[in-house]
C-alpha cells in the first residue's frame, strides 16, 4: 500500500509538468496581446511597453518563458499578476473559499444523495422512488444558471433565509446557498447511482443468506447492502471533488463568490499567464490527490482490491 501511494505521488511530477506546459502553451498561443489588454487599449510609450514585456518575460521565446516559470516555481515564486499582486497571494485568498464551497457541496450531495438513493433503491417502483427519479431528472436537465438564479431569488431574496450573495470573506454560512446550487446536479447523479447500486446488491445471494441467518432487515440493509453499494458512489464523489475544487465558474459568478473559478475566469480574459498556469497547476494536484484518495477508499471498502 505504501509503495503504491509513493508511486502515485511520484506520478504527480510528470502530470504536473505536462498539464502546466499545455496550459502555458495554450495561453501563449491565444490571439491578443496581454500588454495591450493590460493597458486597456490606451497608447503606451514603446519604452514602457518594452519594460512591461521584460518584467513578465513576454519578450522571450516560449521555451525560455516556460523554463523561467518552472525555475521560479521551485522557489515557490508563482510570479506576479498584471495588477502587481503576487499570484501566490491571489491563490491563497481564493483557494480556501473554493475549498469551503466544495466541501459543503460534497457533504450535501454525499449525505442526501446516499440517504435518498438507498431509500429509493429499497422501495423500487414505489411512490418515493418514482418521485425522486423524476425530480433528479429535472435537476439534471435544467442548466445550473437557471437553478442558481431561481434559488438565489426564492431563498435569498424572497424568503431571506440566506444572503443572496457572498462577501469577500466567503464564510461557511454564506456559502451554504451556493453550495446547494453547486451540489444539486451531482446530488441527482449520486441518488441515481446509489439507487441502481442498491437495487443490484439487494438481490445478491449473500443478502439472501444474511437474511436467512436471522438478521433483522435493518441490519441486512446497513451491513450487507450499503457498504457493497457504496463502491461506485465513492468513485463518483472522489472524481466530483476534483471538479468542485476547480471552481464552478457559473455558480461563483451568480453568487459573487471570490473563489478559484472567478480568479481563473478573470485571468483568462486578461491573458494573465502566471495566474492561469498557477491555478491549473494547483487543480492538477487536487485532481491527482482526489483520485488517490478514491483508490484508497476503494481498497478500504472492498478487501478484494489490494495495491502492490
Amino acid at each position: 500500500m505504501l509503495s503504491f501511494t509513493l508511486k502515485r505521488i511520484a506520478q504527480l511530477i510528470p502530470v504536473f509538468i505536462g498539464a502546466t506546459l499545455l496550459v502555458y502553451f495554450l495561453v501563449f498561443a491565444t490571439p491578443g496581446d496581454p500588454i495591450a489588454a493590460l493597458s486597456g487599449g490606451k497608447p503606451m510609450t514603446p519604452a514602457t511597453e518594452a519594460a512591461l514585456r521584460a518584467q513578465y518575460n513576454l519578450d522571450q521565446p516560449f521555451w525560455i518563458q516556460y523554463g523561467l516559470y518552472l525555475k521560479n516555481l521551485v522557489t515557490f515564486d508563482l510570479g506576479m499578476s498584471f495588477s502587481g499582486q503576487p499570484v501566490a497571494d491571489l491563490l491563497g485568498r481564493a483557494f480556501p473559499v473554493t475549498a469551503r464551497l466544495a466541501i459543503l457541496a460534497l457533504l450535501i450531495e454525499g449525505v442526501f444523495g446516499i440517504i435518498f438513493g438507498v431509500i429509493a433503491g429499497m422501495r423500487k417502483g414505489k411512490f418515493f422512488d418514482s418521485t425522486i427519479l423524476v425530480a433528479s431528472l429535472i435537476v439534471i436537465a435544467v442548466p445550473t444558471f437557471v437553478l442558481g438564479f431561481v434559488l438565489q431569488f426564492v431563498i435569498g431574496v424572497k424568503l431571506e433565509w440566506a444572503k443572496p450573495t457572498v462577501s469577500g470573506a466567503g464564510t461557511w454560512s454564506e456559502l451554504i446557498l451556493p453550495a446547494m446550487v453547486l451540489g444539486l446536479v451531482s446530488l441527482a447523479y449520486v441518488i441515481r447511482l446509489t439507487r441502481t447500486s442498491v437495487i443490484e446488491n439487494k438481490s445478491a445471494d449473500y443478502v439472501r443468506t444474511a437474511t436467512a441467518k436471522g438478521l433483522s432487515r435493518n441490519r441486512v440493509v446497513r451491513v450487507h447492502v450499503l457498504r457493497n453499494s457504496l463502491i461506485p458512489v465513492v468513485t463518483f464523489l472522489g472524481a466530483d471533488l476534483g471538479s468542485l475544487m476547480g471552481g464552478a465558474i457559473v455558480t461563483e459568478g451568480i453568487f459573487n463568490v471570490p473563489g478559484v473559478g472567478n480568479l481563473l475566469y478573470r485571468a483568462i480574459l486578461k491573458g494573465e499567464t502566471p495566474t492561469v498556469v498557477a491555478v491549473v497547476g494547483v487543480l492538477v494536484i487536487v485532481f491527482v490527490i482526489a483520485n488517490l484518495i478514491v483508490d484508497m477508499l476503494y481498497a478500504l471498502l472492498d478487501p478484494r482490491i489490494r495495491y502492490a
Binding site: R208, R217, N228
Partner: peptide
C-alpha cells in the same frame, strides 16, 4: 426473523456468491 437462524437454518447453493465479499 425470530425463526431464521436458530430454528430454521439454510446452506445456500453457490459458495462463491453467498458470502459477502467485503466482510471477514
Amino acid at each position: 426473523v425470530e425463526l431464521r437462524g436458530n430454528h430454521i437454518g439454510m446452506v445456500p447453493q453457490d459458495p462463491m456468491s453467498n458470502l459477502n465479499p467485503v466482510w471477514k
